[in-house]
Design a protein around this nucleic acid. Sequence first.
DNA 1: CATGGGATTGACT
DNA 2: GTCAATCCCATGC
Length: 188
Amino acid sequence: MNRAFYERDVCAVAEDLIGCVLRNGPCAGLIVETEAYHESEPSCHAFVGLTARTRTLFGPPGIAYVYRSYGIHALVNAVAEPEGIGAAALIRALEPIEGIALMRERRGAEAVADLCSGPGKLTQALAIRLDDNGASLTGGPIEILPRRAALPAPGIVRSVRIGITKAVELEWRFSLAGSRFVSRPRPR
DNA sequence: CATGGGATTGACT
DNA sequence: GTCAATCCCATGC
C-alpha cells in the first residue's frame, strides 16, 4: 500500500486494511481485525499531544507505530492521516498464510488459530519488535499488501474497541465477518 | 524523583 | 471467571 492509502481518515484506513496482507520476511498473514485511534479521543495515545512516546503517531502516514503494552507485549499500528495529526490503525489479528512453522516456533503454540489471534500474539509470530517503531510500511521489510480479491460476503463487522477505558462507545473496531482468527471477545 | 496505569496474555480455579 | 507478570512513560509533587 502506498502513502496515499494511509493519508486518509483513520477509520477508513482501519476498515480497508481488513483483507490486506501483513508480511515480515518469511511470515505473512491476512489482516482480519483492526482498530482505529485518533488524537481527538482520549483512548488514543496521541490525545496527550506530542511527546517522546507519541512522536511516531504524529509522523508521516504509512509508518509503523510499535509500543510496549503492559510491560510485556509489542503492539503494531499503521500510522494514518496527514503528518502532524496523531492517528493510527492497530492491527489486532491475522489469519496466518505463510511461514506457519516459524510462527509456531516463535509462539510456542501449535494451533494455527492461536498464532496471530491477538495484537501481542501477531507481533511475536512475525517478530515485529519495539525497534521497528517508525519503520516504513511502504518500502521496508515489514509491508502491507493489497487485497488479492474482494472480501467474501458478509464482509466487515463493526463493533466497539477492546481493552480501553475511555471513549468506549465508539465503534472503531473492524473485523472480517465470521473469521475464526479474530481476538477475543469476538464481535457479534 | 516517585508513582500509577495500561490498545494483553496465559495460567489457574 | 480471576489474576499476576512487567516496564515505559506521562504526570504530579
